[in-house]
Write a protein that binds this DNA or RNA. Structure first.
Lengths: 136, 136
DNA sequence: TTTTACCCTACTAAATCTATAGGGTATTAG
DNA sequence: CTAATACCCTATAGATTTAGTAGGGTAAAA
């Protein structure tokens, strides 16, 4: 299941991507428009800033804005920053790989096998979908 | 992320599907072979019995056994019983649908849109993979 | 210089996960 | 018959994660 953090984060990014001018949007504006707790959204936007998706401007007329063209932001990067691994088990994760404690051999593991397939098909979708595509 | 319950459940089902004879297999045997806590496995197998996947035999020489041919058990049904919804958000779930509290309109929701795609591709894999396929 | 709006830390209630504990009961081998 | 086997069932609990809340600090601009 997708965490609220990820869901809200995507919604906020889409909100920003939909702006015609690239002028900063305030947290309060987004939280109101997308029905998100303002303080919670604040922490999400902050992490999106730290990971290089957003820029910010302080003071009056300030807010957050996208640093890149929405067409250049694939959903893989968004998902990995907000949600973490895309795979359903760590042993098939590309960016968050971990060996399973209980599993003696990944190559003969039935779970590994099918989850690898699922990861590939999901990854394909996220790779071929940009933030811009979500705005249509 | 896949819960241990689901992971262990699949491993146990595969273990049973690999049996040549359909004689019952004891919990202890499975827990030892698959490195799963026996008591935890017990509760998982019990739930698989209640949902119609397994039969059991008490007393000496007893254990659990599959009720159907592994070729007739698609992973969709396994996943739904063990893990719950296949979709990443309730609003795109077929069997566990729930409306999002924050979202005014699903049809224009960006998250809904992409998660629907992911659900479809994942579902397709689970539908076309049976327990038997995992034994190869 | 005051207001605005981002920045940061710490904490917490609730839920879920991953078991463990401790026994009860039906079945069957001998 | 009876004793061992192995499933059946309930309750509980520690750990982790989630989804926030509280409370203030700081930089920038009007």
């Amino acid at each position: 299941m997708l965490s609220k953090k990820t869901k809200y984060g995507i919604k906020a990014l889409v909100h920003l991507a939909k702006q015609e001018e690239s002028s900063p949007v305030q947290i309060g504006t987004i939280s109101l428009a997308e029905n998100i707790s303002q303080k919670f959204l604040e922490s999400i936007l902050l992490s999106l800033k730290k990971t290089g998706f957003l820029g910010s401007k302080k003071g009056k007329g300030g807010g957050y804005y996208l640093l890149k063209d929405p067409k250049d932001i694939p959903m893989t990067t968004v998902m990995r920053v907000l949600e973490g691994p895309i795979a359903m088990v760590p042993c098939v994760s590309l960016n968050f790989y971990e060996k399973c404690a209980d599993c003696p051999d990944e190559n003969t593991c039935a779970v590994n096998k099918i989850m690898l397939e699922v990861r590939d098909s999901t990854l394909k979708i996220f790779k071929n979908t940009t933030l811009h595509d979500l705005c249509l």
